[in-house]
Design a binder for these strands. Sequence first.
DNA 1: TTGTTCAATATGTATATACGTATGAATATG
DNA 2: CATATTCATACGTATATACATATTGAACAA
Lengths: 101, 101
Amino acid sequence: MGRSPAARTVWLQALKEARLARGLSQAELGAMVGLPQSHISRIEGGAVDVGISALLEISRSLGLEPIPVPAPLVPAVRSLLRAGAHDGPARPAYALDEDDG
Amino acid sequence: MGRSPAARTVWLQALKEARLARGLSQAELGAMVGLPQSHISRIEGGAVDVGISALLEISRSLGLEPIPVPAPLVPAVRSLLRAGAHDGPARPAYALDEDDG
DNA sequence: TTGTTCAATATGTATATACGTATGAATATG
DNA sequence: CATATTCATACGTATATACATATTGAACAA
């Protein structure tokens, strides 16, 4: 398989949570991106080292854009994400100054 | 091969630029992440649909952490990156854009 | 120019594995 | 019981990856 299973676990978990948050089944998500349900299952289960193209399509279908962040800026980006991390549908980006509970 | 070559082209190009910006050869980068130079070559050339684990290791070795960003927060993250991109390479790599047409 | 050497990148080929198809297990509902 | 829904797994095939070799390009000499 791949090289470092643990390294991608976080990412895969994020995808699974995003899918569930949208109330999608593996089959529905698969249909959206043109992948069989079985493959979604293996990807989420960490059973395969998924290719970047499938990963990008799945991520974007779930409203998650993978962005390469320079290491020194990672903490800043993470706190920005935490501040805007509400799992409702489409929180506008310009409402960032609002405080969350 | 994979599904949408153009969709990942931007990302691969970002990695290549990051590598060159650090003055690394394909062989040196390969040694850092435990991949043969030949594979780095095919990855950068878009000849293969690279697996997420290799992609993560390469990205991180180059000081780039791929983070899944919710779509509504993408503009905010991008501007944050732009603002903090003073010590990085001249033309920064984080210009992931749209899919192939 | 032609030839040589070195460094970086590309390519041929064999093998491990990701991916597609079909199926199975588990759960729910009538 | 049957049928539907959701997720997991076995098997065959396509391909990502590893190893070895070839090609490219720059620099230098005759």
